[in-house]
Amino acid sequence: MANDKLRLTQDLERRAREEGFAAFGIAPADLAPEAGKRLQTWLAEGCHGDMIWMADRAGQRASPTALWPDTRSVIMLGMSYAPDRDPFALEHVRDHGRISVYAQGKDYHDIVKRALKRLARWLVDRSNCEVKVFVDTAPVMEKPLAEAAGLGWQGKHTNLVSRDHGSWLFLGAIYTTLDLEHSLAGQDRCGSCSACQDICPTNAFPAPYKLDARACISYLTIENKGPIPIEFRTAIGNHIYGCDDCLAVCPWNKFASAAASQKAFLPRAELAAPALSDLLDMDDAGFRQIFSGSPIKRTGRNRMVRNALIAAGNSADKGLVRAVRKRLYDDEPVVRGAAVWALSQLDSSAFEEEKARHVDRESDAHVLEEWSRD
């Protein structure tokens, strides 16, 4: 029986490699209770911001068996998306926006899930078991599970770190009714390093291993539907979708190979270095065309233009004033409000001129608040 388990595990890992997974391991169905306790504490402190779904299904998230009682083992898999270029390359190119590495290619949800389903189908055919597959959209604690499966450890930036792939792994899970041999859990190797904490532009880490999403640029530019809080706008710089700073600075990335990444994750030219002027002029149809097949499409045009306006305000590029002024007439208040702030940063005389024109006709309280700022 033990030999059969070992053979199945070896064949399963071999098949996973064929499907493009760079990391493989098996976790027990019952996570250590500490993982659930950390989640409850994090939620109680409000660190999840407006991500209400995190709290709504927290009980199911805490343990695989809470989500599916028949689970006996969790097969954890990782696909590398290690970039072939410096994620900081556009840091000082302020008339262009910075898009997180993971979102510059095709939507990873689709790619990883298709591979997971093929692997799960192979396992069912081989072992006549039941399975469920998950990629980032269900109440699954992928990172603690990946650590329990030996793929790496949850670093001080709260993301998974791998000795072989650095901080560049997309995670997927297969819950199964099979009782498989568990892998050795990953061991924390962050040591005294604080690079990911030190580089965060918005100080989103109140302590190592703890993220306050409300201050995280990824949350602010993707999940947050309203205005970007004033205290974070300057620090956001030219990040317009997500932020890789804490990931990209991780010393373990030196062992990651871009050659191990899926070709589908290679950046599209229009997403690797988007010009802010182009983004500011986008209507909804243009947004859908540019971001078709990208995870960015789910965020919607309004949030992307809002983000581009914040980046424009930080650019010191007066060549963007025309495009910013145009957005003062946008149908969406969240866009108009960001345009007001951007114009105030770029051209004070143009701001006063437009203020006289817009204040009396503006009905949205938030946008009026933007006009009233000193």
Rank of each mutant, 00 (worst) to 15 (best):
S73M: 07
K113W: 10
D84M: 14
W122Y: 15
D56V: 14
R98A: 11
Q60A: 13
Q104L: 10
I26K: 02
A29Q: 03
S73F: 08
A32Q: 12
M51C: 03
L43H: 00
D86R: 13
I111G: 02
P64Y: 01
A82K: 00
P33C: 11
A82V: 05
D56F: 10
A82W: 03
A115C: 05
G105Y: 02
A44C: 00
H48R: 00
A35V: 04
D110S: 03
L67T: 13
D86V: 09
G97M: 04
G25D: 02
Q60C: 12
A120C: 13
G105N: 10
A115K: 11
A89Q: 11
D50R: 01
A89G: 07
S100M: 11
G25H: 01
Q104Y: 04
E34N: 02
I52G: 01
V112D: 05
W53C: 06
D56T: 15
A44L: 00
G59P: 09
G36I: 09
H96Y: 03
R85W: 09
Q60N: 12
P69S: 12
R61L: 15
T71K: 01
H109G: 03
K37S: 12
R38E: 14
A89S: 12
H96Q: 06
G59A: 14
Y102S: 11
G25S: 02
H92V: 14
A29R: 05
I99H: 05
A82H: 03
I99G: 01
M51Y: 04
M76Q: 07
G49Q: 00
I75H: 04
S73D: 13
A32F: 08
L119D: 06
Y102Q: 08
D30M: 01
F88H: 10
W68D: 11
S63T: 11
M54F: 00
G105V: 11
G25R: 00
M51Q: 03
